[in-house]
Design a protein around this nucleic acid. Structure first.
Length: 1125
RNA sequence: GCCGCGGUGGUGAAAUCGGCAGACACGCUAGCUUCAGGAGCUAGUGCCCGCAAGGGCUUGGGAGUUCAAAUCUCCCCCGCGGCACCA
């Protein structure tokens, strides 16, 4: 095209803008408000793709617009330069990762500049620059000092191919996000950051943010907070018949708990023996043991509970060769074992007694240690003791409870150890008919160490072994079919019903969530239901559904009593057609199934048949099956004028034939009958409950009812709502507990190309932070970038770097050789943009104040639960440290859409549908590409748009027409176009602010069409047009601006629209008759209704002929509608 | 399964405080033009009936509210994204 040589003008203006530094952003600008527009900085992969153009050039429209609007806009750019690809390339091509990265950055800088985006390059941030990562290390150390960083031996995701640890987020369907290798679990010592400490705030603070719902929901979902209860289910081992209680010295707590415990245990069917041990302050365990052996029955049906010193006695008994089923030691590490009258009660003291623990272990199925807390002795003492004994450790509420005389359930637990479950549905506790443990559950692990605990030890052991072998992948994608093994000889006691229930191990229960054990309520949990069906376990319903009907029948009348009823609801299929019967009440416009009350002593099916005959006259309905129920429906009965609470059973009938008797006139007057297909029916019914039944019929099975309801079969809790019952049952049988799916953030990477973790390990002082004046810990050059494969990074091979003095004691130390996850680098980069050259601080308070928080952050949806969540957490941690002023980093966040290949598929080299932006820019110019991407669809919604090669050409044509329109510019004043010009001005401004760039471009196109049609445009109007075009096509606008102006268009102000001009524009009014368009009318916007009506009547006279106009509806400036009969 | 978002011509889409459905652009059809290009101009282009005037239908399906529904309500279906045996 003659006028428009994109190559020439783009190069020309880019050079000029750069030379003039027009995009260098000062921290403050007189009389201008600051605006911080952020887009995610790119990874220097080496080549810019269309996605980058979409990410950078489209928000640039907003940046430029806001500048014209008088804002001081920061629109920065940088590179997220650490990470695996550089290292992989280094290994593959024997390059230095730094060289590889820097070359890529240099190339991509050029490419980004070709966009003509208004980035302020003077603030560029590169994360692999020591001047940047010095502060990454410094910030990490601040978190370390605050206690938010810890090292832990964790089962982590290990990729055997990359030979590194992956974050949970980097595992996709059990495979490595990068190389698709199956991920395995491996125990490793890892650096973790306590993001879970912030779980509540990360959810709760979302409320304050005006973000798209979808982003908030994803984050909430990811954090996965559930509020529920922990409930203890006591264990019963069926051949324990007798429990012997041994109290401590001086009687200790025994006076308080003995009678209560005896009563409780006897109620459960145990025989209880309490030997009257000599009560002395200086007991002798040998003497006491003699006494017990003499007075008590000690055999394989006996369990011993030893409290405090009583526990020592129990141990002594075992050592003597006494064989019993089970022993529980209550608070025994704290027992009054005073060797010399002075020593604190402790494990050490017990150990000095010289027990033969190996022998003790063999004398009993297992020993349970009931530990309390560390008010008296450190918790670790209890742990050490448990380890020595191979004990199952039960954690209790506090040692003081044993001395305060209160009746404590904890003591009871010690006698009869319990499995603690987590549930979000304590309201269904009475329906818990069995218990399931995860294969990793610690109690099970202990039980398996003693071959005699479980009758089917071998079977259980092999199931546990098998599920351990299953990788994460198999557990996630493999068979969802429930498997499991019953734990024979042990049972649990449902604390609510007191009934004994079976226990299972099954891998549908996860070891790492909740307590690793669940109460199974098959009636009200689908998974439990499936398991129960398979293992033929009882299903106990404890909830009736409740629906408060609103449609047709009125909502219940408040404060009026309910009339209780039993009823059936009948779905009736036609004898020949695939249609279902529906009756419509004549008076109330209620469309429903046949339903009616069950009379006293009547069978539900009989009642159904009777009702069908009465209401429809059909003689031969055949009962097919029960579809659902019971379900309690509350509604206001229109005819009877009373609140009704009805318990419905749902029955499905098929008519055998069409034989029908005359129905009574009374019935006929009430309703009429319709036959509808299944599909029609769902929309046709007016009562919710009917539609629900239809759903049940369609799915064919009831399954578990997982909704809320009214309790039944739950003793004192009957008739409570689920919500009430949750509170009441939790209070009585458990305690409130909140759990999260979110796990702590593992930040160690066993890789070279990352920020070295600034920690030194010292034999004496442990993990010590590098002192601040020694930062940065510079990433050293190494010869070989291959990870060792042992789990250590290549840095470990560099001994002279690793060996260093301990910053604390000066002794021999070793540097940490892991590097940080790159998500740490990107958790604060936006702060650095505010003050990129500061060598004293990561960013000065003053500069932060100018720019933070970020006004608008645009990025990819894939970062919602990763980068965005991590950086929110990081910012909160810095906020708590007083390092930043806001608790949230981003005022607004928006996710960008995806640009697909021309075939509508995701662009990929293997599909061969990759669009190379450089080539398109070469052919059609940067302005065309920018504007096309703006035009492709709304930027403020997440979607995906295929790149249409013809569509780009269309935009190019538009720009060429803009160039040609220059010839239409005349000096003379004309206002022919002014109304549409100002309408466009208004629309374009508003659309840009809402990021609806597509309709803004469309408005510009419409205006250009009008200019071409007018054949002439005044200079002032043309100037306005060019200024509107400037944010979209900066080079073209600048070129055409320079025809008549000095100075850059990008320093111009955005023109204000004239509202009065828009108001005076003519309007088209639509004329409707009964809502159908019959004509239209051009009127001035201030035309009177009367005038409009008479004109309109005239125009559509034929449509009104012989009709009577009931009503005329005016919508000013839009339409007039005649309602006629 | 749960949560979220969405479903409008041949295509990208527009219109959502209820008020002309399909703006703008691509593509397609016909004609014109041409310094032969991935060019320009003019007209047409949701579907059906009709030579036309005109009429009917149409926003995933069904039902409802309303003078009026893509837009609001209810039920169902489909697509995309996230989570996923999370108790």
């Amino acid at each position: 095209m003659r006028g428009y040589d994109h190559k020439k003008i783009e190069k020309k203006w880019q050079k000029k803008w750069e030379a003039d530094n027009i995009y260098t952003t000062p921290d403050t600008s007189p009389k201008k408000d600051n605006f911080y527009l952020l887009t995610e900085f790119p990874y220097p992969s080496g080549n810019l793709h269309v996605g980058h153009w979409y990410a950078f050039s489209v928000p640039d429209i907003l940046a430029r617009y806001l500048r014209m609007r008088g804002k001081n806009v920061l629109y920065p750019i940088g590179f997220d330069a650490f990470g695996l690809p550089a290292e992989n390339a280094a290994i593959k091509n024997k390059l230095n990762p730094r060289t590889w990265t820097e070359e890529n950055i240099a190339y991509m800088r050029k490419q980004i500049r070709s966009m003509g985006a208004s980035f302020d390059w003077s603030r560029e941030v590169v994360t692999c620059d020591p001047a940047y990562y010095k502060w990454t290390q410094w910030l990490f150390l601040q978190l370390f000092k605050k206690g938010l960083v810890y090292q832990k031996e964790t089962a982590v995701n290990w990729c055997p191919n990359c030979k590194t640890v992956l974050a949970n987020e980097q595992v996709v369907d059990g495979r490595c996000e990068r190389c698709d290798t199956e991920v395995v679990q491996k125990q490793m010592l890892q650096w973790n950051i306590k993001i879970t400490d912030y779980a509540d705030r990360l959810i709760d603070d979302l409320e304050k943010l005006d973000w798209p719902r979808e982003i908030k929901e994803s984050q909430k979902n990811w954090i996965g907070r559930s509020e529920g209860a922990e409930i203890d289910f006591p264990l019963a081992i069926d051949d324990v018949k007798r429990i012997i209680l041994l109290h401590g010295k001086g009687g200790s707590a025994v006076g308080a708990w003995k009678p209560w415990l005896k009563m409780k245990l006897e109620a459960m069917g145990y025989e209880v023996q309490i030997p009257a041990l000599p009560n002395t302050n200086e007991p002798n365990d040998e003497e006491q043991a003699d006494y017990v052996q003499k007075h008590c029955t000690l055999d394989e049906h006996t369990a011993i509970v030893g409290h405090s010193f009583g526990g020592v006695v129990a141990l002594r008994l075992l050592e003597r060769g006494v064989k019993v089923r089970r022993v529980a030691l209550v608070a025994t590490p704290y027992s009054g074992v005073y060797l010399d009258g002075k020593e604190r009660p402790s494990v050490t003291a017990i150990l000095k007694k010289g027990f033969d623990f190996e022998k003790i272990k063999k004398q009993s199925d297992f020993v349970l240690l009931y530990d309390t807390n560390d008010h008296v002795v450190p918790m670790s003492d209890g742990e050490a003791f448990a380890e020595k004994l191979g004990c199952y450790l039960v954690r209790g509420k506090g040692v003081e409870s044993h001395f305060n005389g209160a009746v404590e359930p904890d003591v009871f637990l010690a006698a009869v150890p319990a499995i603690r479950v987590f549930t979000t549905r304590p309201d269904t506790l009475f329906g818990a008919t069995y218990l399931v443990l995860a294969p990793e559950h610690p109690w099970l692990t202990l039980a398996l160490q003693h071959k005699t605990v479980l009758k089917n030890h071998g079977e259980v052991q092999s199931y546990v072994d098998q599920s351990k072998k299953k990788t994460e992948l198999q557990r996630q994608t493999g068979e969802k079919e429930k498997t499991g093994v019953r734990l024979e000889r042990v049972e649990a006691v449902n604390p609510a019903t007191g009934g004994k229930i079976p226990m299972f191990v099954a891998d549908y229960v996860l070891g790492h969530y909740g307590t690793g054990a669940i109460m199974a309520v098959p009636a009200h949990d689908q998974r439990d239901f499936e398991f129960a069906k398979k293992f033929n376990l009882p299903v106990q319903h404890v909830l009736a559904t409740t629906i408060q009907s609103t449609a047709g029948a009125d909502a219940v009348h408040a404060r009026e009593p309910f009339v209780e009823k039993n009823a059936v609801m009948c779905i009736i299929k036609h004898w020949a057609k695939d249609e279902y019967l529906c009756i419509k009440w004549r008076d109330y416009d209620v469309r429903a199934f046949v339903s009616g009350g069950i009379e006293k002593g009547e069978d539900a099916v009989a009642a159904g048949i009777r009702e069908i005959r009465e209401e429809t006259g059909y003689l031969n309905p055949k009962f097919i099956r029960h579809v659902g129920g019971p379900s309690i429906v509350e509604f206001y009965h229109q005819r009877k004028k009373e609140n009704t609470r009805t318990r419905f059973e749902y029955l499905y009938f098929e008519l055998e034939d069409g034989k029908q008797e005359e129905i009574s006139t009374a019935e006929d007057a009430k309703h009429e009958i319709f036959w509808k297909t299944f599909a029609e029916l769902s929309g046709y019914l007016t009562i919710k409950e009917n539609a629900k039944v239809l759903g049940l019929l369609a799915t064919g099975s009831e399954g578990a009812y997982v909704g809320e309801g009214i309790l039944m079969n739950s003793d004192g809790f009957d008739d409570m709502s689920s919500e009430e019952a949750r509170r009441a049952i939790t209070e009585k049988y458990g305690r409130l507990k909140t759990t999260y799916k979110l796990r702590d953030w593992i930040v160690s990477r066993q890789r070279y190309w990352g920020v070295p973790i600034p920690i030194v390990h010292c034999k004496k002082c442990g993990a010590v932070s590098v002192s601040e004046e020694d930062l940065p810990v510079v990433l050293p050059e190494v010869d070989d970038y291959l990870p060792e494969g042992t789990g250590k990074s290549p840095l470990a091979k560099k001994r002279e770097w690793v060996e260093v003095k301990c910053p604390s004691c000066g002794g021999v130390g070793e540097r940490e050789t892991d590097t940080l996850d790159t998500f740490v680098d990107s958790s604060w980069y936006f702060l650095r943009y505010a003050d990129p050259l500061n060598s004293e601080e990561f960013a000065s308070k003053e500069n932060q104040k100018q720019w933070m928080p970020v006004d608008l952050y645009s990025g990819g949806a894939e970062h919602t639960t990763m980068h965005v969540l991590y950086s929110r957490f990081w910012h909160k941690a810095l906020f708590d440290l007083g390092l930043v002023a806001d608790s949230e980093p981003y005022v607004r966040r928006m996710n960008r859409s995806l640009i697909l290949g021309p075939d509508g598929q995701k662009m990929s080299k293997s599909r061969g549908n990759v669009v190379d932006p450089d080539a398109v820019v070469e052919r059609l110019g940067a302005d065309t590409v920018r504007m096309y991407l703006a035009f492709i669809g709304p930027y403020n919604e997440v979607s995906s748009y295929p790149w249409n090669p013809d569509g780009v050409v269309g935009v190019r044509r538009f720009l060429e027409r803009v160039f040609r329109a220059e010839a239409l510019v005349v000096e003379a004043d004309t206002d022919e176009l002014s109304e549409s010009l100002h309408e466009t001005l208004k629309k374009v401004g508003e659309d840009i602010e809402q990021m609806k760039f597509n309709t803004a471009v469309s408005a510009l196109m419409i205006l250009l069409n009008a200019i071409e049609k007018a054949k002439t445009v005044s200079t002032s109007q043309w100037d306005v047009f060019l200024r509107m075009l400037a944010p979209f096509a900066p080079h073209v606008a600048e070129e055409l601006w320079s025809v008549r102006h000095q100075g850059t268009i990008h320093d111009e102000e955005w023109p204000e629209y004239d509202a009065s001009l828009i108001a005076r524009a003519m309007r088209t009014i639509v004329i409707q008759v009964n809502g159908k368009k019959r004509g239209e009318l051009r009127v001035a916007s201030d035309a009177a209704n009367d005038a409009v009506e008479s004109d309109a009547r005239q125009q559509i006279a034929p449509h009104l002929e012989g009709k009577r106009v009931l009503k005329t509806i005016f919508v000013p400036g839009r339409l007039v509608n005649f309602v006629v009969v």
